[in-house]
Amino acid sequence: MDALVNKRIKRVMKGDQDAFAEIVELYQHQLFQICYRMLGNRHEAEDIAQEAFTRAYVNIHTFDQSRKFSTWLYRIATNLCIDRIRKKKPDFHLDAEVRGTEGLNMYSKIANDEELPEEELMRMEVQERVQYEISRLPDKYRAAIVLKYLEELPLAEISEILDLPLGTVKTRIHRGREALRKQLSNL
């Protein structure tokens, strides 16, 4: 797999765009999944996943081929997601003040610190509820949980993706897990 990817990367570096299309083809679903689980919104996930591929393409000559391409790609994507989450927060409150909640559907109301009423939670499907609780986690725990439990990546790789020491990654997974346990205890 890595050898195949590296061959394509060499072709991209020489200016072959079709080779990059094959890379997008290969990683599109995993990358979209990470973005979707981080952001909780398909439209934004598509946007960010696309931006992540663009950045990988533009920076391709900085990629160190002795490393794993997916690690680098996921790092670009998680950085973009965390950035988006942080930029979104104040916007949301501003919007809410100006326009009220009129016209906003349930999903756009979801911000990390907002809690839906109990009866609303009870009506949710399990899958929907899990996604909602993940999107309420602080962004740093969210990234670690998504990479560990949805992408099922080894801790060493998560530490490379998030550019954090292994110990910090573990702590974030533990705290994220504990927060989810409390949030999901009534399920």
Binding site: Q28, H29, L31, F32, Q33, Y36, R37, R42, E46, A49, V126, Q127, V130, Q131, I134, I145, Y149, L150, E152, L180, L184, L187
Partner: peptide, 10 residues
């Protein structure tokens, strides 16, 4: 529960 979340596709 978290792991049961279905895989989404692009």
């Amino acid at each position: 529960f978290v792991q049961s979340a279905s895989h989404v596709q692009a």
